[in-house]
Amino acid sequence: MYKLSQITTLLQKSIYLNAKRKISMYPLPYSCICGQVYLKKEYPNHRYEITRVHSTQSDQHRQKVVIETTTPKIVINKLGEKLPDQKLPDRTDLDSKAGFWKEKIDPYVKLARWDRPIGVYLLYWPCAWSIALGSLPGTVPLQSSLYTAGLFLVGAGLMRGAGCTINDLWDRDVDAQVERTKNRPLVTGAVSETQAVVFLAAQLSLALAVLLQLNCYSIVLGASSMLLVIFLGATFNWGALLGYSAVTGALDLSVCAPLYVGALAWTVVYDTIYAHQDKEDDMKVGVKSTALTFGAHTRPALSGCLALSAASLALAGHNAGLGLAYQLAVLGYVAHAAQQIYTLDTENPEDCASKFKSNSSVGAIILMGILAGGYKQYMDNIADNVNHEDTTKSCLFS
């Protein structure tokens, strides 16, 4: 029999060994330089399990958890402690840069609508079609056509911004009464009228610099578009003419005229869809739009515009000698636009906005059709015009 003292000693040892075993199995905490705490648990055969703990802790003391949505303050502070000799960004510097962008730059981006590039795309696509068609004769090197396409993309961004700035200057009083436009920079005062005029002058100056990179015929043609500035749709699709002349140095009206008409009719389709977003406010302030003009006859009217657009684009491709692939692309455009028209909910602004934005895919469909339908023609022509003069060169800077 055990004595009472022996039993007591045995119990004490058992308690001690059990406590020691539990302590040895308990995960050991450690922290990284970001302040996050991890638990490291060791298993036999030198295996470890690492678990992240929802807290922040340094080697010496615990910190409060700070949730930052902009600047990673904890990381910067910890790195500063670990790397005292390294120059790291200061939180106040980061905040000041963000504030500078929000207060000084962002209003102009919104004024030019560069934060919503769909307008640039819609302005650029007719230019791209025209440049592609003008390149089919193979009289200019491929790099010249691509360079011209790049110039037109920059020009489209500048002219789109300039057009939006002019629109906001003219309509700032009306915009204040329309729900969708009441937060525009000129209405809220984020940009003053004088600042908007200076910004407009800068955009037009840069656009002129782009225009002067083209041949003389195109410079005159581009300047003449100013005569049609009161007709937004007419000038909006001027690139359907200008792109062709920028490549060839002249206009082939059998190709360019139907291309221009097709692009113009397409513009009426998507612009009317867009205008249905604001028709209630337009009626209140007395603004005229195609959405109000067509009214209950919107679908038949847009169907007629679609038919005119498709026939004109098909004729332009036929006169340019494009193959079957292009005509299939035109059919794809018709199917896409018809689906838009007949599923359009004119009383739902969100549906109108969504369908308006989807028109950018129409431009890509037609361009792909031109490239596919004219590839063989282009390859045959370019082999026969190796020594032809490059007509894309600027008459002022070449």
Rank of each mutant, 00 (worst) to 15 (best):
residue 386 V to T: 07
residue 193 E to R: 07
residue 61 H to C: 07
residue 217 Y to D: 15
residue 248 T to I: 10
residue 100 F to M: 01
residue 225 S to M: 14
residue 76 I to G: 04
residue 150 G to V: 02
residue 134 G to C: 09
residue 352 C to S: 15
residue 142 L to F: 15
residue 325 A to K: 04
residue 211 L to Y: 13
residue 39 L to A: 02
residue 69 T to F: 02
residue 324 L to T: 15
residue 101 W to L: 10
residue 146 L to I: 10
residue 221 L to G: 14
residue 122 L to V: 11
residue 52 R to W: 01
residue 54 H to V: 13
residue 396 L to P: 11
residue 104 K to E: 10
residue 123 L to P: 04
residue 31 S to D: 06
residue 391 T to K: 11
residue 181 T to K: 07
residue 60 Q to P: 05
residue 164 C to K: 05
residue 299 R to G: 04
residue 43 Y to T: 00
residue 79 L to D: 13
residue 151 L to R: 00
residue 67 I to D: 12
residue 162 A to L: 04
residue 367 L to T: 08
residue 262 G to A: 08
residue 222 G to I: 08
residue 306 L to E: 13
residue 159 M to G: 13
residue 124 Y to S: 04
residue 294 F to P: 01
residue 195 Q to C: 07
residue 337 A to M: 14
residue 356 F to K: 09
residue 314 A to S: 13
residue 361 S to N: 13
residue 31 S to H: 03
residue 104 K to T: 12
residue 221 L to Q: 12
residue 332 G to V: 05
residue 148 T to Y: 03
residue 285 V to T: 13
residue 380 D to A: 00
residue 222 G to W: 09
residue 1 M to K: 07
residue 247 V to W: 11
residue 310 A to W: 03
residue 364 A to F: 03
residue 22 K to S: 13
residue 365 I to Y: 06
residue 132 A to N: 02
residue 148 T to F: 10
residue 55 S to I: 11
residue 391 T to Y: 04
residue 208 L to H: 01
residue 121 Y to G: 06
residue 58 S to M: 12
residue 231 F to G: 00
